[in-house]
Design a protein around this nucleic acid. Structure first.
Length: 209
DNA sequence: ACATTAAGTGATT
DNA sequence: AATCACTTAATGT
């Protein structure tokens, strides 16, 4: 039986019970795609451990990082897709090894009226994601790429709890929807300003960042 | 020693 | 800021 105790603060005991009764545990390994663009959404994931990376892709196959889904969260996009059975607009890839509880989408409607905390949870994930997307739009529209890069690096280091970021310039570029050359140049400038130190496959963030 | 992959750089659009 | 073309550096076999 799944253990939903992660969510004790969020949900009332009866709801925790229901989640544990009706949910199934699924583990996915780092790097595997758990939902691709066009796939049908059949389950509502509740993340227990790990991080899922949600991204979008344009016609030429360029990827753009949308957001991360962390433990005690669910994906706002799956709400919108699964309620009306629309195919997924996004791709979700396990950033780390991930453990989650899958809930049948049929419980959505039912719980929405039955459990106030469930409704609050759904609304909160919507609001959080919406706020974040707005911020991202601001960034893309109004901010220069170097600011975005700095923010990106800070976010990574915050979520890994380390000042060492183990990514290639190439990977960063695809996340930010840019090209490797550009990222390399920006990073070089940051290094000249003593805000980072560059290694192969690794970037050390300095306190001055 | 050689091949492969990551990163650096000038020139062009 | 993106792309091309090329160089240099690091790493694996």
């Amino acid at each position: 039986m799944p253990d939903a105790s992660n969510y004790k603060i969020t949900f009332e005991p009866e709801l925790i019970q229901e989640i544990e009764n009706r949910g199934k545990v699924q583990k996915i390994t780092a790097g595997s795609t758990f939902l691709d663009i066009g796939d049908a959404v059949r389950n509502m994931p509740l993340i227990m451990h790990g991080t899922i990376k949600v991204m979008r892709q344009d016609e030429e196959g360029h990827e753009l990082l949308l957001y991360y889904v962390n433990p005690s969260e669910s994906c706002a996009m799956t709400f919108t897709c699964c309620m009306q059975q629309y195919p997924s607009e996004i791709r979700a890839v396990a950033e780390t090894d991930v453990e989650m509880i899958l809930l049948p989408i049929s419980v959505m409607d039912e719980w929405l009226v039955k459990y106030p905390t469930w409704k609050a949870f759904v609304m909160k994930t919507f609001k959080n994601r919406f706020d974040e997307l707005l911020r991202n739009i601001d960034q893309i529209a109004f901010q220069k790429l170097d600011d975005r890069l700095v923010l990106y690096l800070k976010q990574i280091s915050k979520s890994t709890g380390s000042t060492l970021v183990n990514l290639t310039h190439e990977q960063i570029a695809t996340d930010l929807g840019s090209s490797r050359v550009v990222i390399s140049r920006l990073l070089k400038r940051l290094e000249n300003d003593r805000r980072v130190i560059l290694y192969r496959n690794q970037i050390k963030l300095m306190a001055s960042l």
